[in-house]
Design a protein around this nucleic acid. Sequence first.
DNA 1: TCTTTAATTGGTCAAATGATCAACGACGGG
DNA 2: CCCGTCGTTGATCATTTGACCAATTAAAGA
Lengths: 205, 205
Amino acid sequence: MADGMALTARRKRLPPEARREQIVDAAVCYFAEVGLAGTTRDLAKRAGITQALLYQYFGSKAELLEAVFARVYLDRMSPRWPALITDRNRPLRERMLTFYAEYTGAIFSYEWLRIFMAAGLAGEALNRRYLDHVRDVLLAPLLAEIRFAARPDVQPEMEDLWNLHGGIIYLGIRRHIYHLPTPDEVMPVIERAVDRFLAGFAIGH
Amino acid sequence: MADGMALTARRKRLPPEARREQIVDAAVCYFAEVGLAGTTRDLAKRAGITQALLYQYFGSKAELLEAVFARVYLDRMSPRWPALITDRNRPLRERMLTFYAEYTGAIFSYEWLRIFMAAGLAGEALNRRYLDHVRDVLLAPLLAEIRFAARPDVQPEMEDLWNLHGGIIYLGIRRHIYHLPTPDEVMPVIERAVDRFLAGFAIGH
DNA sequence: TCTTTAATTGGTCAAATGATCAACGACGGG
DNA sequence: CCCGTCGTTGATCATTTGACCAATTAAAGA
């Protein structure tokens, strides 16, 4: 009677698409926790399936990791951000704060940060492509906006913007990579950082 | 005749201390490149010794990694930095720039950053201990200095200092973890970041 | 030169791991 | 109710990998 559920729960049949989604979900969680060198057996055990079934849906572990990368990165970049950044009807400071509130809300997760960092260490080209995209689609337009608002004699460079960006991202790194205590609310810290940055280029709030 | 050197080069006997140093050196380089999941066989091959010899000097792979961690972190924290930071005979800005010039000079290396990041992902307690040390011995005194120099109505918090610190460290992360192009000279970027930071707390240069 | 010490090696074992395949059985169609 | 499809499983293989040990041999001392 006690094991009735456990026994009947075995061999649950799912439509391929749902099963594939379930596997990728479990894989994201698993590899974020133990690193990309995690084993297919442990992953299968955590997903509640057999190891052999993984190879029904993915030809190899590398292919499964590709699906994990895609799941983690796709649709985490909101297509609204470029328009938000360049909307000069709103104050620049407000645009930046809204952007970073949404951006950190999207990527400050245990899974995203750890898998992104692990991919970087593993030499995956994905990181470079992603950060090139961040630079071209988000930071470059933002830099243009700041330059437009800044005094002509104190114009920021892209490297200054990377510095602001990095200081913000580092908060997530401390929290999720190093497991260090961080403020529950990140926006007050980000707000002060953005204000210091804008003030440094003589942009009043 | 061609293989004379190669053959006679085998089985070179070294005093234990020198051999151990050589192994740790090779291990630092190897694990930084391929990650902590690298194999003892590949490491031995790269070090030019047999795999069995590793176990003459280290009881296990974990013990070898401990030695790698120790090598990477020990003596990279200069004991002069606390005194430098609190030396009120020098301008605060100059102290901060000198400190970050030396600090980044010490840790902005391929080996240090990658092994430190890999250790963080692996959940090693080392990262937390190291960063606690950074906070207590370096950032906390620095924060006190900045508060001393700042106007009483705009006092920075520790989290603001982490933000400055993170923006600087992120430069090394982009360079050595993500393999992205970064400026050859980091000090101009750091100098501007420090100036913006100090200006944000109404500290003139 | 001979002896002794111990640094070094090739060989090997057991466990772990990626990958494969024949067989099983849950579900829908007839 | 039976049958065929195909999602799923248990078993298995070939490698890889951490770890160990007896045999080898380079180097120091008498």
